[in-house]
Simulated assay, not measured.
Amino acid sequence: MANSPVSSYSLDHVILLLDTPDFENLPEWLTKNFTVIEGGTHAGGSSRNKLVIFPDGTYIELINWITKPKEFFDWAGKDPGLIDFALTTPKSAHETFNEVTKRLESNEWDEKGAGDGGLGVRYKDPLAGGRKRKDGQDVKWHVTKPLLDNDAPNVPRPLEKFFPTGRLDTPFFCHDVTDRALRVPYAEKEISETHPSGARGILSVEVVVPEEKIDSYIKLYSSVLGVEPKVHGGYRYSPTTSVSFPLSVPNPDEKAIKALRGRIGVEIRAPRDQEDEAWVKERGVGIREIKIFAEVKGEDEVDEAPFDSEGIGASIVLVKEPVGFWQEGPR
């Protein structure tokens, strides 16, 4: 287990699936709040993307199907909205695959045991992927996708209730082969630092799981992320409890990161209200919400609000904090 309370692993990007009308004419909540750049067509030819790049090195990928999917089959049955998220690490794809696999197959990670929590999760060998940018440059990477055994003892059942459009309850990994700046041009300030909302990066990814399975998912994510969880909200897990896994970021030079250390990461929780229950019923166990952090001037309080009152934008939240926060450090 990592000695540091913050994993060396980082959030890489979040997948936001759009239907063709919204992809070709982006909704106002996106255009008014973000600088969106063209991505390109994926190597398989059946999907395309646009990107929202943040200076912390993370991004939101807006993806759309051009034809019947020839790649990314695990996303093929999903409805538009948040569908998946990726991690990256300082090590290579194959090194990461080996160390994550070792943890998933171990029952001696801590005094409670870790492994995969009985959720039947391993990872497939890293697979080469890529796309051609609009400027003609080839971007190459390795993707490491979860391998899921739905017959494992702690998988939420019935499957059709908890995974109505297929199982996507575990993040994948993305490692660059070409220079990361080709895939994620976060150093280009006109791309990453011009968001009208003031967005600087992804603060957290929230994953909703059945309350009775939260112990299993905590063990799983401990193994996948390489860090112990922080429990908030009570002695025992409950619908009001949040369990977070602190992560690093791809660009540690981003000025907000030192102040946000320990707050960036993945949060696991049970449904809290009817909206959460409806989300799981319609979309299944998995990514529920992401929070984007922003610095603001002329304000002295933290403010949180979704980008839209309903629909896809309601599951993406902007967290605005005073400029002085960045200099004062963590609270």
Rank of each mutant, 00 (worst) to 15 (best):
Q137H: 12
F163T: 03
N154H: 05
L148H: 06
P146C: 12
D138N: 14
K140P: 05
P164K: 00
K140V: 10
D151I: 01
E160T: 07
L168E: 07
L148C: 04
P164Q: 06
K145Y: 13
N154E: 15
K145N: 14
L168K: 04
K140F: 11
A152D: 09
R157V: 06
R167E: 07
R167A: 04
D169R: 01
P158I: 03
P156L: 06
L159Y: 02
V155M: 08
L159E: 05
V143F: 09
V155C: 06
K145F: 13
P158G: 02
P164F: 02
P158L: 04
D149L: 07
T144A: 12
T170H: 01
L147N: 13
A152F: 03
K145T: 14
L159Q: 03
L159I: 13
G166D: 06
E160Y: 03
D138Y: 10
L159T: 08
W141Y: 13
L148W: 08
N154T: 02
W141C: 11
K161M: 03
N154C: 05
P156C: 09
W141I: 11
L159C: 01
T144N: 11
D151H: 05
R167L: 01
F162P: 03
D138R: 12
P156Q: 06
H142Y: 15
Q137L: 15
K140A: 13
F162V: 07
W141Q: 11
D151A: 10
K140T: 12
F163I: 01
K145D: 13
K161S: 02
D138S: 12
H142F: 15
T165W: 00
P153H: 08
D151Q: 11
P146N: 10
D149N: 13
P156N: 10
Q137Y: 12
P146H: 10
A152V: 09
D151Y: 04
N150G: 11
L147D: 15
D138L: 14
H142S: 14
H142W: 15
R167T: 04
R167P: 01
D169I: 02
W141R: 09
P146M: 10
Q137M: 14
L159W: 05
L168P: 00
H142V: 06
H142G: 06
K161E: 12
T170E: 09
P153A: 07
P146W: 07
L147E: 15
R157M: 10
H142A: 12
L147H: 10
N150A: 11
R157W: 00
V143I: 15
T144E: 14
D151F: 06
D138F: 09
P158C: 03
L168F: 01
V143L: 14
R167N: 04
R157S: 10
R157D: 07
Q137S: 13
L159V: 08
D151P: 00
V139E: 14
L147I: 06
L148N: 01
V139Q: 11
T165E: 05
T165K: 09
T144K: 06
K140Q: 15
D149H: 06
A152C: 08
K140S: 13
N150W: 00
F163D: 08
W141H: 11
D169Q: 04
P153I: 10
L168M: 11
A152R: 03
A152W: 07
T170S: 08
F162R: 00
E160C: 00
L148G: 05
